[in-house]
Design a protein around this nucleic acid. Structure first.
Lengths: 258, 258
DNA sequence: CGTTGCGTTGAATAAGGTCAAATAGAGTGG
DNA sequence: CCACTCTATTTGACCTTATTCAACGCAACG
């Protein structure tokens, strides 16, 4: 049963049911064999609980580049685990200004801003073709009541999101432009590494403007800083491709001066 | 049984048990008669569930002005509901810079940043003499498993904290100094009103520096803006006392220009 | 009644924003 | 495959905003 929200969206909904007839993708969908398992799920989950967990991942959904997974105001039913691709989450205030609140990569959960009010508070837009696991939140809560490990895990995820947000406040509230970009690059690097990608060589999925919005800077400032970091031998940039040449140097940008 | 964390703190722990011999404060501690009930608890909680809820509020704790309710790194056991007084929460980064992440007034929960890692991520410091209800988190989770309404409420509180943080990102990332202070004052006003205090006449518990840290501004800038708002007839300020004279005018500061 | 912390105000400065122009790439349709 | 269009990016010149540095006033407190 697809929700009003999901029916409205243009992205394709793939219910598990339809994948059950010997389709290879049926196997992919099991959490136990998913290579993002350690990111999405608590460790030490009993085998039977894992099986129950898999039952609440009731569908996967593909979102094409530029499309929204959800928009502010859409009715909240599910949180989503990014399986592949890259998202940005944004909020829009009354006078039309957009603020990027985060970038999400595989293994990360999005949509938790909708729990409190019953409708999503921000937007989630795919920066490239993406696939997500749909986790109907009422099922998550139900299973949480039965499996304390899972309940605990959910609380940890929510709490860590709060901690992450506080980090962004620190970034926006007390750091200079250079430091903000350095933190941003180091953070991306670490997250890519954790997922088995190169920590020093990656492709930015977002524009300078989106980076700027996230970091509280104008796109021109971001561009200038990229050029400066390149001149200083810290990175190599060519459009969206970034190569970190001196990770220690980037770390030393923090706290230098001031 | 007081935890290592609580034993270290100087603030006094008041276990419920010690209040049970005809002490008036025994009555105060019941959630059902607490005037902050609508803020802390889900509405429509069955009478018996309310009674169970009261059992997890195992203590109240007084914290004097300037003292910490908890500090970054302290072992996490409980979240706290502010009963009276005013807190600031802060984080400190490696090079010693402090960022104020929030101000908390009665009815608000603090300490949720500790769930994810098992130790608090930031500090909570009393800006005036305070009293909090101590909610041991393992009991909260346990009761959440038994009372879905309560579980849901906890998730809402966590989610709303995320939404609040996103609002701060918008503030820090896309607003001019004037707008930030206007948003800050309007937000305080609304929260005071909600608690039955004057929406236009209040006492700031925090210094200009703390406001500045929260808003990503220097204390001098905050001071200048207070003076400017006064000149413009929007507010009257005298030290920590603020009187809002033109709330619509303050709202129009948002989005004007830019 | 001096000390101390907090707040206000002014003048100079620096950081980042704005505006504008040039360039580079990616995507599109012929 | 090429020309064309559109968007993203880079860079320069100039400007605005908020910061820095410094001096001073005020209020609370021992």
């Amino acid at each position: 049963m697809s929700t009003a929200n999901e029916a409205r969206a243009t992205a394709k909904v793939v219910p598990l049911r339809s994948l059950e007839n010997g389709n290879l993708r049926r196997f992919e969908v099991t959490c136990s064999s998913c290579n993002l398992r350690e990111l999405c799920l608590p460790k030490g989950l009993a085998e039977e609980d894992m099986a129950r967990m898999e039952r609440i991942v009731y569908a996967r959904r593909r979102i094409r580049r530029g499309e929204a997974l959800f928009n502010a105001g859409d009715e909240f039913h599910s949180v989503y685990a990014v399986r592949s691709g890259f998202f940005k989450t944004t909020i829009l205030n009354e006078d039309g200004r957009e603020q990027v609140t985060g970038f999400n990569m595989p293994g990360e959960l999005i949509g938790m801003d909708g729990i409190g009010t019953g409708s999503y508070h921000g937007n989630a837009v795919a920066l490239e073709d993406c696939e997500v696991c749909v986790l109907p939140f009422s099922l998550v809560e139900e299973l949480g009541r039965e499996i304390p490990t899972l309940q605990r895990h959910l609380h940890c995820v929510l709490s860590r999101e709060i901690v992450r947000d506080h980090g962004v406040m620190m970034l926006l509230g007390s750091m200079r432009a250079e430091e903000r970009l350095a933190v941003f690059l180091l953070n991306l690097s670490r997250r890519f590494m954790r997922r088995g990608y190169s920590q020093s060589d990656f492709h930015l999925r977002m524009t300078r403007e989106e980076i700027g919005s996230y970091l509280g800077l104008k796109l021109e400032t971001v561009s200038r800083l990229f050029s400066k970091f390149q001149e200083d031998g810290l990175i190599e940039v060519q459009q969206k491709h970034v190569r970190i040449r001196n990770i220690d140097g980037l770390e030393q940008v923090l706290g230098s001066k001031h």
